[in-house]
Simulated assay, not measured.
Amino acid sequence: MEITIAGTGLAGGAWPELLPDRRPVLVVPAPAAPPPHPVDDWSREAACPHDTPHPGWAATAAPPHLTVHRPTGQPWYDAPVTAGREWWRALRTHEVLLLVTGPFTDVFDFRRAAEAGALALLTVDTAFTTP
Rank of each mutant, 00 (worst) to 15 (best):
E2H: 15
I3L: 15
I3R: 15
I3C: 12
I3V: 15
T4Y: 01
I5V: 11
A6P: 00
A11I: 10
L19Q: 09
P20G: 02
R22S: 00
R22D: 00
V28P: 10
V28R: 09
V28S: 14
A30N: 07
P31F: 13
P35W: 02
D41H: 13
W42G: 06
S43P: 10
S43T: 04
R44V: 12
R44I: 07
E45T: 06
A46R: 11
A46E: 11
A47L: 06
P49I: 01
P49D: 14
T52C: 15
P55S: 11
P55Y: 02
W57Q: 08
A58K: 13
A59E: 08
T60S: 09
P63K: 04
P63T: 00
L66F: 03
T67R: 14
V68Y: 08
G73C: 10
G73R: 03
Y77K: 06
D78N: 13
A79P: 04
P80L: 05
R89N: 06
L91W: 02
V100I: 15
P103D: 12
P103L: 02
F104T: 01
D106Y: 06
V107K: 15
D109M: 01
D109G: 10
L122F: 04
T126V: 15
F128P: 14
T130D: 12
P131R: 14
